[in-house]
């Protein structure tokens, strides 16, 4: 992977948090219509410090604390976008985006279609998402399926600092509204190997590790889990290909299809509960298109069909490399 070691070393000093911050800085500098608001995103820099220093450097008219009301944040961002602004708003945590559900689903997603393209809503809704940080209740949800099931939304999620930077910039410049899911367990991780990542458009999936026996389809927080699984798998003689979807909606049929045609087996890994989850869509979609190339049903290795558990139980809920390897070994497939 590490073809360009200088860049890799460079990226080792970069966290996803600082990469996101840098993307917003750049957007604020290059385009005066970009504004940022949300809960505590001002002087505090957000509870995760992703907007650190932005109010100080760009002023209260560009980056400010809004009243504490998620529907209000999304609803007012809609009006701003209608008037030519490019708002970036932060939902403080995944589960606290739910008060804004109506504004997102009924308006953010539908305004462009409703007005036959006359009104564009170029806005980014940043949502720190998923578990793995020992969060108390309501701080670890994976809400992607709610958004991906909604036509009109673009839903992306980076898994590493380099992608976080380029994808957020692209999301801000996009004329469509984007749900930007930030895997909070990755915020502070310094990536070693991502510095050499080729820039890739936001809507494309990336093969992050090549293999020949099975494709693990992961995104956001489960990409690193899949990579660990692949590493472990080599000891068992298993050659695992790992795909980082990056974009959940649209779905990159091409990249995933090509991989599956090569490995003939695929499993989707996500933290969210299984039933009716995003993995079901991936499994159905890939099966419909690649049925004759598949040697086994597409597997979903996911969080349990329970509410996200209390911190001390989270490790039993989340998919981990051992569980993934076990699932692969008990899989029905013909060789």
């Amino acid at each position: 992977m590490a073809k360009n070691s200088a860049a890799a070393a460079d990226s080792a000093t970069v966290t996803m948090a600082s990469a996101l911050n840098r993307a917003m800085r750049e957007a604020l500098s290059e385009d005066s219509s970009v504004v940022i608001f949300g809960e505590d995103v001002g002087p505090l820099g957000g509870v995760f410090r992703i907007t650190d220093g932005l109010t100080r450097d760009f002023g209260e008219n560009r980056v400010w604390d809004s009243p504490l009301a998620e529907s209000g944040i999304i609803g007012t961002a809609i009006g701003m976008a209608m008037y030519g602004m490019r708002p970036i708003v932060e939902m403080q945590f995944d589960a606290f985006s739910y008060p804004a559900f109506e504004q997102v689903v009924s308006h953010v997603a539908k305004m462009h279609n409703r007005t036959r393209g006359a009104v564009r809503l170029p806005m980014v809704i940043r949502i720190p998402t998923s578990g793995g940080i020992g969060g108390v209740e309501h701080h670890s949800d994976s809400s992607e399926a709610y958004w991906t099931h909604t036509p009109g939304l673009t839903v992306v999620t980076p898994s590493n600092p380099a992608d976080a930077y380029s994808m957020l910039l692209e999301a801000i410049r996009s004329d469509d509204p984007v749900i930007f899911l930030e895997p909070k367990s990755r915020y502070w991780m310094k990536e070693k190997s991502e510095g050499n990542l080729e820039p890739l458009p936001m809507n494309r999936a990336r093969v992050v590790r090549e293999g020949t026996d099975v494709t693990l389809i992961a995104y956001g927080p489960t990409v690193s889990v899949a990579l660990e699984t692949a590493e472990l798998g080599t000891h068992e003689g298993l050659s695992v290909e790992v795909i980082d979807l990056r974009s959940l909606s649209p779905f990159d049929d091409e990249t995933v299809g090509a991989s599956v045609r090569k490995t003939h087996r695929a499993a989707v890994i996500h933290e969210a509960a299984q039933f009716g989850g995003y993995g079901a869509e991936v499994a159905a979609r890939v099966t419909e298109r690649e049925f004759y190339h598949l040697a086994a049903p597409i597997l979903r290795i996911t969080g349990a069909d329970t509410p996200f558990p209390a911190p001390l139980l989270e490790k039993f809920y989340l998919p981990n490399p051992e569980r993934i390897l076990d699932s692969l070994s008990t899989w029905q497939w013909e060789d």
Binding site: G75, T76, I78, G79, Y83
Partner: peptide
């Protein structure tokens, strides 16, 4: 829901 859109648009106009 439209009240919030009005507030947002009005705020954008004010900022501009």
């Amino acid at each position: 829901t439209q009240l919030l859109h009005a507030v947002g648009l009005a705020t954008a106009a004010k900022l501009k």
